[in-house]
Design a protein around this nucleic acid. Sequence first.
DNA 1: ACTTGTGAAGTGTTTCACAGCC
DNA 2: GGCTGTGAAACACTTCACAAGT
Lengths: 225, 225
Amino acid sequence: MEAIKNTDKGRSKTEKISDSTIQRISIYYRTLNRLEKQAVKRTTSMSLADIEGISPVMVRKDLSFFGTFGCRGVGYDVQSLKRELAKILGFSRKWGLVIIGGGQFGNVLINSQTLKDNNFTIRKIFDKEPDLIKDIDDQTVVYPLDQLEEKINPEEDHIAIIALPPPEVQSVIDRLGKIGMKAVLYMASRSIKAPQNMVVMNQDISIKLGMMTYKVLEKENNRTA
Amino acid sequence: MEAIKNTDKGRSKTEKISDSTIQRISIYYRTLNRLEKQAVKRTTSMSLADIEGISPVMVRKDLSFFGTFGCRGVGYDVQSLKRELAKILGFSRKWGLVIIGGGQFGNVLINSQTLKDNNFTIRKIFDKEPDLIKDIDDQTVVYPLDQLEEKINPEEDHIAIIALPPPEVQSVIDRLGKIGMKAVLYMASRSIKAPQNMVVMNQDISIKLGMMTYKVLEKENNRTA
DNA sequence: ACTTGTGAAGTGTTTCACAGCC
DNA sequence: GGCTGTGAAACACTTCACAAGT
């Protein structure tokens, strides 16, 4: 087989790919990762799909925005599809991370296997009390929080993850904006204002919990109705 | 003012509210929370919106699915809108949580202020080595992981949060399914299969990072194009 | 026979434009 | 004058149906 014809449609100016598609591509990638570890050689849109209520057509449509990766009648080669999706998502490139806030949550990130698996390297950690941070490997350096501006280099520290309590997040984002940081992910439960050109995302557990409680109530009501 | 006419449209069988709407309602709720703490009395769809690239019309449309909460020419009363959104999301009710996995990540949850703020109570913690878990308040009990089935009561332990590494998640979800658990949130980076009637969500940081790296690359390419 | 890739149809979501109310 | 609420229009996303390749 080997039918990859990455026509790079998605990267052209003509078509704008939706967030939902990118999110699902990340999910397919995650599944391919597991299949590869299990030494599975081939897969189908069917098996990439059924796991989270995504239809096989959806999988094929999502992939079709970026090129032709499968063989009709056969399916997809796990390794090469994974490699192609890595290219699309940017996981084939190395990404330098900076963790801001070395508390309990910051430490989860520092020890995260998921980050290491996906080509993310934690280069720097900033904390008010840098002396308290232990167990760091060779490639990671700890700095005091007020040295943010002088120590971060947005050309090699690509993404900042802010693991600070809600009230402190906005001021850190402002400071990161001034030095030209390109991407920030923050964990806190709050909304923030960010510079136009900065990619900002939020990973707040209370949003997911709100959706869950809504859905649980919805089911209860439908049952009794 | 006081113009709340909750016609409960959304809860009727006729209309199905989209996930995006619920997610945004959670975001508005979060903002209202902050405004209330800052003793702000009134707000507008404009100020609820601009914070995350959501349009004011979108805010009004989202709210309109559930009733009429504002006053024309005036805006919304912070306290009462917050109360109404809490009702919609289920935050006005108390929710019992169970944490499965008392490692580093589990401990972040155990100490989370966000959970306490939103009427979530951690009732039970399960871990392979329950003796290692310290610093628990009165309402929380720690059990060994194999007592899952006998100690969990889905009627009062409404939501389980699984903070275990990826390979262990599926078997725990299977066990929770058997005893009739209604809602599960898991943190691990993997996909799972769940029983039809279970509300399952995933909070995996690598999905968000995948979206971020994609967007960063997208910007680079558009600039050079 | 089986599975991908895709234009077209169908469905759902967002924005527009303006009426209604303070 | 200012802001909400909403039907209708515009747009985006998903599913269908089927051609094409192995």
